[in-house]
Amino acid sequence: MSTFQGIPLGAVDFYEDLEQDNSREWWLANKPRYDDDVRAPLEALGALLEAEFGTPKLFRPNRDVRFSADKSPYKTHQGLVVAPVDGMGWYVQVSADGLMTAGGWWADRPELVARYREVFEDEDAGGELQDLLGALREAGYVVGGERLKSRPRGVDADHPHLELLRHRSLTATREYGEPEWLPTAELLEHVAADWRAYRPLMQWLAKRLGGKTV
Rank of each mutant, 00 (worst) to 15 (best):
T3W: 10
F4Q: 01
Q5R: 12
G6M: 11
G6N: 03
I7S: 03
P8I: 04
P8N: 10
P8K: 07
G10P: 01
A11T: 10
D17P: 00
L18M: 07
L18V: 01
D21G: 05
S23R: 04
R24A: 03
W27I: 11
L28I: 10
K31V: 09
P32G: 02
P32K: 00
P41N: 13
P41G: 09
L45A: 09
L49Q: 04
E52D: 12
P56D: 08
K57W: 08
K57H: 12
R60K: 11
R60D: 09
R63E: 03
V65L: 10
R66L: 07
R66A: 04
R66H: 10
A69L: 10
A69M: 11
K71P: 00
S72P: 02
P73G: 04
P73M: 08
T76Y: 08
G79K: 01
V82N: 03
A83L: 01
M88L: 14
W90D: 09
W90Q: 02
W90H: 09
Y91L: 01
Q93E: 15
V94Q: 03
D97L: 11
D97Q: 15
G98K: 05
M100F: 00
M100C: 13
T101I: 13
W105M: 12
W105G: 11
W105Q: 09
W106F: 15
A107N: 07
D108E: 14
R109C: 03
E111F: 08
L112N: 14
V113M: 12
V113P: 10
A114S: 14
A114F: 09
R115Q: 12
Y116F: 15
R117A: 08
R117Q: 05
E118G: 13
F120D: 05
E121K: 14
E123K: 15
D124I: 11
A125M: 05
G127V: 01
G127E: 13
E128A: 15
E128N: 15
Q130N: 12
E138A: 15
E138T: 14
A139Y: 07
G140T: 06
V143K: 11
G144E: 07
G145V: 07
G145L: 06
R147I: 03
R147W: 06
L148Q: 13
L148R: 13
L148N: 08
K149G: 07
S150M: 07
R153I: 09
D158G: 02
H159N: 14
P160D: 11
H161Q: 13
L162D: 03
E163M: 10
E163F: 00
R166W: 05
R168N: 14
S169E: 03
S169A: 06
L170N: 03
R174I: 00
R174W: 01
E175C: 09
Y176N: 06
G177F: 10
P179G: 12
P179R: 02
W181N: 06
T184C: 12
A185L: 11
E186K: 15
H190N: 11
A193I: 09
A193T: 15
D194Q: 04
D194N: 12
A197I: 09
P200I: 02
P200V: 09
M202H: 12
W204Q: 11
L205N: 04
L205Y: 06
A206F: 06
A206T: 11
A206M: 07
K207S: 13
K207I: 06
K207E: 14
G210D: 04
G211C: 09
